[in-house]
Design a protein around this nucleic acid. Structure first.
Lengths: 207, 207
DNA sequence: GTCTATAAGAAGATAGAC
DNA sequence: GTCTATCTTCTTATAGAC
């Protein structure tokens, strides 16, 4: 594996655990298996490593967004899948997506790094909100609008539906980031949330 | 004002904006209006300042919890108020509570500080989850259980109701922490969320 | 309790050999 | 590209006068 890439991986891991300022260049180097001065042959400075991680992450965001969007980028294409899917299917899909975001090393580390660095820079703050809130809500709004138009769900404001669907899932995800030992317990809540959400917006009175 | 208290305030402000490691003792001192060495007459070390903030916060948590709980500590006592309250009243109460948490200097700074320091220490992680999730959900669960028992709302799982009520509000709050200029726009979403939540769990079909 | 001066040490970065 | 040795700067913290 490329040393340059190894450095980014090591740095991302450390930055996500301790934050940029608490990580020493020597630590990154040690994780890679070299000495600190050697690292400067690959990156001009510590800050350049951080910036490179950010750049890599922006590039790979389309890939992550594709996961989030299940299909790629078109809500209309996904609506059909959802329409046919059972409540159990919705739960299974939600849980497996949750598990991916929770356990995928790159995804989790980047989420944690952005979390602890979000107030250092308005650009990071905007990136955070865009990536973990606005884009997700925007996509899900489209999806729910479609499902309501199809009569699969009943709801008058898809944007609020998306907020009410997404926010609990994101909250459970960040709880697992902080206390991984609670994953099993919180996955149960996740499942119950999705089930109740589905029931509610189907107009089911038995709740 | 007591210098010792001034130091805590200055440090909390700086820690919440830049994180513990990025704040220098000299910065804190400057904000207080003294020189760095003078500060050591009040606190033995930089870490002791951080610890003192944490202690102060734990002490004042009951006060904050009282705000969150509207009444103090007994959901049963609050349920009556809610039962009598209109949808508009619920919105007004939710919005003003939201504004308090967003604008109260101490509350906001402590939330931001805990956000950026949460992964440094399992104790901080547990404190974060307890304060911003578990305790809030636990209280709201009791409240919703009461309202369901009274027939004011219809729902079979108060814990999930609490999650679906609280998570969107908390998400909007953290968005305002990151991008204060979006407050107006997000307050509209907050209001729509509360209205739709109220309608849904009243069994209203017109949604 | 506050100051100036300074010690002590940490951490980012460079020089130059191999 | 990696190493050892080293420079430089920054930062916490202490000493001691006032």
């Amino acid at each position: 594996m490329d040393t340059k890439k190894k450095i980014l991986d090591a740095a991302l891991t450390l930055f996500s655990e301790k934050g940029y300022a608490n990580v020493f260049v020597a630590e990154i180097a040690e994780k890679v298996g070299i000495r600190a001065p050697s690292l400067y042959k690959h990156y001009k400075s510590k800050r350049m490593i951080f910036d490179a991680i950010l750049e890599e992450m922006k590039r790979s965001y389309d890939g992550q967004a594709a996961m989030l969007r299940i299909d790629g980028n078109d809500p209309a294409a996904d609506a059909g899948k959802f329409a046919a899917v059972s409540e159990d299917g919705l739960v299974e899909m939600g849980v497996s997506l949750f598990r991916f975001f929770l356990h995928d090393g790159y995804t989790q580390k980047f989420r944690k790094m952005l979390t602890v660095e979000q107030f250092h820079d308005p650009e990071l703050a905007a990136l955070f909100t865009r990536q973990y809130v606005d884009d997700a809500l925007s996509y899900q709004s489209g999806l729910f609008a479609m499902l309501c138009a199809n009569g699969v769900l009943k709801g008058e404001d898809p944007q609020i539906m998306a907020l009410q669907f997404h926010a609990p899932i994101y909250m459970l995800l960040t709880m697992c980031d902080r206390e991984p030992e609670r994953e099993a317990e919180l996955t149960v809540l996740l499942e119950q949330h999705i089930r109740q959400f589905a029931k509610m917006y189907k107009g089911d009175e038995n709740r």
